[in-house]
């Protein structure tokens, strides 16, 4: 129905077309094993991360070159974040958090290339990421603290009369975590790319094309920032949830 409206004005906006999952070879149905553009871009993501973190540090130089210092910068940033936010005992989970951070950052950034496919703009992908965090954090919480973990929902610092209400709110907010965690990332990516696409659609009209190209440039710059910040936010929230699981006392 949206397509019809757009066709009537002569402009063609297909802001959502870039998110289509298509098979790489031929155009059959998408089975669970079919190599699709998702596969391609995830592979490129992995290749880029390996190039940065493994190839870049191949020299093991005391005085690092540029690539190695970027790799060390990323390592240091995530390491410090885990240590500061979640505590020293969370460093055991550092490799997984680093995996999350690198995957999301590189997916977001690679998704900004023209003609590319943003894997993190799909709720299926971010949902799995967020659910993995949610489930593992809950399991860690119960394994480490037993039933004491439920103290997270029972706010002892509040007056007794308020505690049941607060407990309800805490439980709801706990279960909303994976939802907001995943939708924040997917929504930001989707929205930014769709906005760029819409502005790019306006470029077909000669009168406003300079303006629209300017707008695309500006939004693109913003999106580079958002790509990084969303990866950072996803990671730091993971650390916060992990801290809640390791030290449930408020």
């Amino acid at each position: 129905m949206a397509t019809e409206a757009e066709e009537a004005t002569g402009l063609s906006f297909h802001p959502m077309e870039q998110f289509l999952v298509k098979p790489l070879f031929g155009d059959g149905p998408v089975h669970w094993y079919t190599p699709t553009n998702v596969t391609l871009w995830m592979f490129i993501t992995v290749a880029a991360i390996v190039a940065l973190l493994v190839m870049g540090t191949r020299g093991r130089a005391i005085v690092p070159n540029r690539v190695q210092s970027v790799a060390e910068l990323a390592y240091g940033m995530v390491h410090k974040m885990v240590e500061d936010v979640a505590g020293k005992d969370a460093l055991k989970y550092f490799p997984y958090i680093m995996t999350l951070f690198m995957f999301i950052t590189f997916s977001n950034m690679l998704g900004l290339l023209p003609k590319s496919f943003t894997t993190t703009s799909h709720i299926a992908v971010t949902g799995v990421l967020a659910l993995a965090v949610f489930i593992s954090v809950t399991v860690i919480g119960f394994v480490k603290n037993g039933t004491h973990f439920l103290g997270l929902f029972w706010v002892t610092s509040a007056p007794l009369a308020l505690r049941p209400i607060l407990a309800v709110i805490e439980v709801i907010s706990y279960f909303v975590r994976p939802v907001s965690h995943s939708i924040r990332l997917a929504g930001n990516m989707m929205a930014g790319h769709a906005v760029i696409k819409v502005f790019a659609g306006f470029a077909a009209i000669a009168a406003i094309s300079p303006l629209s190209i300017l707008a695309v440039t500006a939004v693109y710059g913003l999106e580079v920032l958002v790509s990084f910040i969303q990866a950072y936010v996803f990671t730091i929230l993971t650390c916060v949830y992990l801290k809640d699981a390791l030290h449930p006392a408020h």
């Binding site: 500061d84 936010v85 930001n188 929205a191 936010v233 929230l237």
Partner: peptide, 18 residues
């Protein structure tokens, strides 16, 4: 870090609206 957490929580509801 607290700043980003706060921003993330504030933004989450906007993302829901979106």
């Amino acid at each position: 870090a607290t700043l980003f957490i706060g921003i993330a929580f504030a933004e989450a509801l906007g993302i829901f609206a979106f």
